[in-house]
């Protein structure tokens, strides 16, 4: 497909003798949600870091369709271009909120900082927009001056989402955004993500070990094992009619509630 938003080609990363990510290629369309599933050590988080250009691949490339319509190889961007892209048109929601937020800065500051990074200068506008986004992620307005250190795990994740989405990105990466949270908190967060992705037409790459998360959020799924993509396809097809032995094992290992 020529209108892809993101194109990964042959992404490979080795750590010594171990291959963390082996020859991974995929296209992501605007508004499409791709889940990368697998167990610990499968390479799914390495793949996400390669996509986010936080790791340099041993071989392979990632290309992105810029707002002017041109598909550019991310490795060929200048550092200034790359940083501008990451802080406006891309979001990255981390598993550990402490890596995605500035813990000593207020909630409003966390959201406002991204806006300023994208060029906003007017204090009143920034605070107003921050308030709107806190409301969207169900954080009460009177918490705007509290730092995330005073927030629960679920609230921190919602704040990360607000911080990432405030600049109107077209692509968001998420690394296990719900793991480590209580199930009721997970459900609320997933519902919020599902609603925002649909409403804003975001393209999303989400890494998860939780097949229920993949089923709820994603259109397509890639199953990874030991660095390789072993099965890929329509999410409900892969989960309901898995063809690879390892995928059958993963699917059959889930306890039905």
């Amino acid at each position: 497909m020529s209108d892809a938003l993101l194109q990964a080609r042959g992404l490979t990363k080795r750590y010594g003798a171990r291959t963390a990510c082996a020859d991974v290629s995929f296209d992501l369309d605007p508004g499409e949600v791709l889940a990368i599933v697998g167990e610990s050590g499968s390479g799914k988080s390495t793949l996400l870091s390669l996509i986010a250009t936080e790791l340099r691949p041993d071989s392979g490339s990632v290309s992105y369709r810029m707002r002017d319509g041109e598909l550019r190889d991310l490795a060929a961007l200048s550092e200034a271009e790359r940083r501008a892209l990451m802080r406006t048109d891309w979001g990255f929601v981390r598993q550990d909120a402490r890596q995605g937020l500035r813990m000593a800065v207020s909630a409003g500051g966390n959201v406002g900082e991204r806006l300023m990074g994208a060029g906003a200068r007017h204090y009143g506008t920034i605070r107003g927009t921050a308030l709107d986004w806190l409301a969207k992620v169900e954080i009460a307005a009177d918490r705007i001056d509290d730092p995330p250190t005073r927030f629960s795990g679920g609230m921190r994740q919602r704040l990360q989402i607000a911080r990432n989405l405030v600049t109107g990105p077209r692509l968001v990466l998420m690394d296990e955004p719900t793991s480590g949270l209580d199930v009721s908190v997970q459900a609320r967060l997933l519902d919020l993500i599902r609603g925002l992705v649909a409403e804003l037409g975001l393209a999303l790459v989400i890494v998860t070990h939780d097949l229920a998360v993949a089923r709820l959020l994603s259109h397509r799924v890639m199953v990874m094992r030991a660095g390789w993509v072993i099965e890929t396809g329509l999410t409900d097809q892969v989960l309901d009619d898995p063809s690879e032995p390892y995928t059958q094992l993963l699917v059959s290992s889930v306890l039905a509630a």
């Binding site: 409900d236 097809q237 309901d240 009619d241």
Partner: peptide, 9 residues
Amino acid sequence: LKMAYGNYR
């Protein structure tokens, strides 16, 4: 039915 819907291969 599931094959027609693309749910089964």
